[in-house]
């Protein structure tokens, strides 16, 4: 295989991994604080729609991004209300949010743009463009490293770089700040955090809102960078793949990067080769589609190390009276 083909696949991997990575980190914050979130999909979808819609109407991709984040935060707030304030079932709340987003986006898109539940295609200035890193063109001719720099590292939208920067940032917040320490503690042992006089409710709300923010970025990336506009159900299960990646990563930031890159790579392969000829067997494209989910089940089965979620995950915190 030629270097340029490999680079194209890897380049595509990076693009496809970005929304997964953002959503995965979003889920990481929420679940590390003890709030299960299967509503990543819905928040991304809402953000995708609102970012595309506002970018289409105003022509400003930054306003679009803002709107996407606000929409995602609103759904996060709803999840917080159900899961934290009213101590409802977090899983059921997540399911509801996914359906709410799936229905409302199409409903509003149809009433707003009358294009069958999609937004108009975004022109170049209403999208996040590709950033050419300094010297990319000049170095292109350098053997091996030049194309890698020019093709793979340079030429992505700003959100890709933001997503990758979020990995060390998340690590730093979780493991090097007091907030992170408390956040992890509240996901393992909320009683202890409460006893220490720290508000469980406020910590969990912060985590859920950070999750909303990151899902907003993920959704906006889908509609305004990866593609040019919103179409119905455009997240296409990415929220669930991100959830799978989170388990794969065992709720750790750097591993989240590796897991989402792996799943992004699988998607890139599936996109490029409809049926993958492995010499002995030909893998149909559907097998590639299913692979992230199958891998997650294998992980959950404990064949590749045990995935232990945060101990207090999914349980509403009830103060002893």
């Amino acid at each position: 295989m030629e270097l340029i083909t490999v680079l194209q696949i890897l380049d595509s991997t990076v693009r496809l991994a970005t929304p997964l990575l953002l959503a995965c980190l979003a889920g990481l914050f929420s679940e590390r604080a003890g709030i299960f979130d299967i509503g990543l999909e819905g928040k991304m979808l809402a953000a995708a729609f609102f970012s595309a819609a506002i970018a289409a109407v105003t022509g400003s991709v930054w306003l679009g991004l803002g709107a996407g984040i606000v929409a995602s935060l609103a759904l996060s707030g709803l999840h917080g209300l159900a899961a934290i304030t009213f101590r409802g079932n977090q899983l059921i709340s997540g399911v509801a949010i996914n359906f709410l987003a799936a229905g409302l986006t199409v409903l509003i898109a149809q009433s707003w743009f009358q294009q069958g539940g999609r937004t108009p295609s975004l022109p170049g200035e209403a999208r996040f463009g590709q950033i050419t890193l300094p010297g990319a063109e000049a170095l292109r001719e350098v053997p091996v490293l030049g194309p890698i720099y020019a093709e793979l590292i340079s030429g992505h939208s700003i959100l890709v770089y933001v997503a990758f920067a979020c990995v060390p940032l998340t690590w730093w917040i979780l493991y090097r700040t007091r907030f992170g320490l408390r956040l992890r503690a509240v996901g393992e042992n909320p009683e202890a955090v409460d006893t220490a006089g720290i508000s469980v409710v406020r910590l969990r709300y912060s985590a859920v809102l950070i999750c909303g923010l990151l899902c907003g970025l993920a959704g906006a990336y889908l509609a305004t960078a990866l593609q040019a506009g919103f179409v119905q159900d455009m997240t296409a299960g990415r929220g669930y793949i991100a959830l799978a990646a989170l388990i794969f990563a065992k709720w750790r930031p750097w591993h989240a990067l590796y897991a989402t890159l792996l799943f992004g790579f699988l998607q890139a392969i599936a996109l490029r080769y409809q049926n993958l000829d492995l010499g002995i067997v030909t893998l149909p494209v559907q097998a590639m589609d299913a692979l992230p989910y199958i891998l997650t089940v294998v992980i959950l089965a404990g064949f590749i190390g045990k995935a232990v979620p945060p101990r207090a995950g999914g349980e509403p915190y009830v103060k002893e009276r």
Binding site: A82, G88, N89, A96, I97, F99, G103, L107, Q110, G117
Partner: peptide, 28 residues
């Protein structure tokens, strides 16, 4: 009408939300 079929998905979501996740909001 111009109301898309997805309205039922919204209603479904709201039913799940209120009878499931926000049960306590009604119950308390």
């Amino acid at each position: 009408t111009s109301i898309p079929r997805e309205l039922i998905i919204v209603i479904q979501a709201l039913v799940i939300l209120f009878t499931g996740a926000l049960d306590n909001m009604v119950r308390i």
